[in-house]
Write a protein that binds this DNA or RNA. Sequence first.
DNA 1: CTGACGATTCACT
DNA 2: GTGAATCGTCAGC
Length: 213
Amino acid sequence: MGIITNKEILNASKLTLHFYDRKNVVQIAKELLGKILVTKFDGVITAGRIVETEAYNGIIDKASHAYGGRRTNRTEVMYSNAGLAYVYLCYGIHHLFNVVTNEKDVPHAVLIRAIEPMIGIEVMLKRTRKKKLDHTLTKGPGNVAKAMGIFTKHSGMNLVEDVIFIVDDGLMLKKNQIVATKRIGVDYSGEDALLPYRFIVKNSPFVSGKKNK
DNA sequence: CTGACGATTCACT
DNA sequence: GTGAATCGTCAGC
């Protein structure tokens, strides 16, 4: 979806608290498509275009860790102010990166499920121990966090700072490039598993749950 | 303290 | 399509 330079990333406008603190988490998940996720650890920048997200709609969403108002050490960050990272370990192996939305005490979040690598591909390959770039590098939430160098220790980090953040370079997706589907891996949540809370950029080879390898 | 399990990925049949 | 990997979290005792 286009080349971008290091400089352009840093000149693009970073999403602010105002983007994250809105009430409609599904709308935010949709709007995050096309934005650019950036990490800058010790001056090393990696970045990729977001092409797949999922909304988790707080205490009424059976698929959410915060369903029923469940409040634990792990999920506490979702109850914080918007614009923080919620990162947790899944299956003891994978670190999953989410963006906390809505106001304090409303535990909404958006899971970033896939990006298209743009900057720091060599670094991403090293982090993931992969030999060459293909769509498995950043396809699926576990792979996104791994390639971007995001771990559970980053949970609670403020996305308005300069370490993990999201920028808008002005790319506008056409309406017909965006598809809504049911979420992945949440079959345990009954009828809520059917909600159209997953958003993907049509035809992106980096979107999960597709053929190829 | 204990046991069950997960917003996944990958190798293998 | 099936199953293993691997460990922090959480409910229950």
